[in-house]
Design a protein around this nucleic acid. Structure first.
Lengths: 223, 223
DNA sequence: GACAACATACCGACTGGTTGGTATGTAGAG
DNA sequence: CTCTACATACCAACCAGTCGGTATGTTGTC
């Protein structure tokens, strides 16, 4: 999933390879994608304001000229990176084996298990780029805030069909709505990320998502 | 709580007043507390890195001299402000009427209702200072991270006795532990804050905390 | 209780380094 | 040749932190 090429790999290519003689540089047109990927990585680690343009350029293995060729400003990159984050999350809903399950509730629970399994390793590798960034931008930059909102909404909307189908098939306690539950799932994940950052450890996040799974099971009468 | 005199007031007072009447300045020794309160306010709005020392000073109505008299660095203020946040949250567990209820489960549910009622008005007024700050510091400043962790832990530990007593009296489904549930409550709150920031609206946060309350009721067989 | 000696609280101009952003140059594709 | 995609050099604004100084206590001595 993470589609994280080693950050150094691009920069390493700047070193002329032995053969051929010509110093092959990164293919033209790749700078934009590398800058967005670098922003995802760096902002998740340090936050948005603490991440400088130079730092993103260094992580992407390009120069400032390339940065400001592709983006009008740092804030413009932030918006583009939020949109890029939505793309990057899309495979989560298509690839894994559990998406083929027949029962929509099993697909939903499979997704939760999938998210649970993601909570491994360094905190900065599984946390949410838009969730991190919106905290710094919600009151000061509405374009970034809206881009983050769109990404979060896309996640919730991707989750909703299965939840709706599960409700139709199994019923749900207390008239809980599909979109409301999808948003709660997202909220618990975001909260779990913060707890993981607090302890600098993923375990505490898994614990919360396990509570979430139990809640969903109970709602659908499988508790 | 906010104790925010007009930011300009102190500077204005530097001009000698005409009459012999006393130009009353802020009482000596108040600068530290005002700086911490200003940090709480400003960081919750803009994040930690985007908040400058000058800005905090202006909001507190003191000068940089006062700032660096009380704190060795901006990061040192962050640590002190995290500790101050714990103090500021303490009354939540002592004051409200629900803390007098006889049944510990009612006290716990009363606390959730209390948190729910807090989710009103501007987002920056009910979100969590340490939850915001830890996102920017967890990987880059361990002193700040640890201070935030301590504050979060203090919250969870304040919640735990009632949960334990509620488990003892009513039993709980699936052998859920008191500390684990307390941490999940905190996680859902933090996640709800992020969702509120995303939409710049408190309603979405209330929805998630309502899910949380339902989960707790179900765990204790009151669903 | 008066006064010297000292300590604490606070002020605001200044500095060196960093930041986002710009102006200009160049190389490869078509 | 031209245009896009980058690179390099540079700048003004801003930032955290410093420093010399003042104002307001506090303490010990007689």
């Amino acid at each position: 999933m993470s589609s994280n090429p080693s950050p150094a790999s691009a920069a390493a290519r700047a070193v002329p390879p032995a053969g051929g003689g010509s110093a092959r540089r990164a293919p033209r047109g790749s700078a934009r994608a590398k800058l967005i990927a670098a922003a995802h990585q760096t902002v998740r680690r340090k936050g948005y304001a603490a991440t400088s343009v130079d730092e993103i350029c260094a992580a992407a293995g390009v120069t400032k000229g390339a940065f400001f060729h592709h983006f009008d400003s740092k804030d413009a990159l932030a918006v583009a990176a939020a949109e890029g984050w939505t793309e990057r999350a899309r495979p989560m809903f298509e690839l894994p084996p559990h998406t083929r399950l027949e029962d929509p509730l099993d697909r939903l629970l499979g997704h939760i298990d999938f998210r649970l399994a993601m909570l491994e390793g360094p905190v900065e590798d599984f946390t949410c780029f838009v969730g991190t960034m919106v905290q710094e931008a919600y009151a000061t930059n509405d374009a970034i805030r809206a881009a983050c909102e769109a990404s979060i909404n896309a996640y919730c909307e991707a989750l909703t069909p299965d939840i709706e189908a599960a409700i139709a098939r199994h019923g749900i306690a207390h008239g809980v709505g599909a979109m409301s539950l999808a948003r709660h799932i997202q909220a618990v994940l975001q909260g779990a990320f913060i707890m993981a950052k607090t302890a600098n450890d993923a375990g505490i996040a898994r614990d919360s998502v396990t509570h979430l799974k139990r809640y969903i099971l109970m709602l659908f009468g499988r508790g």
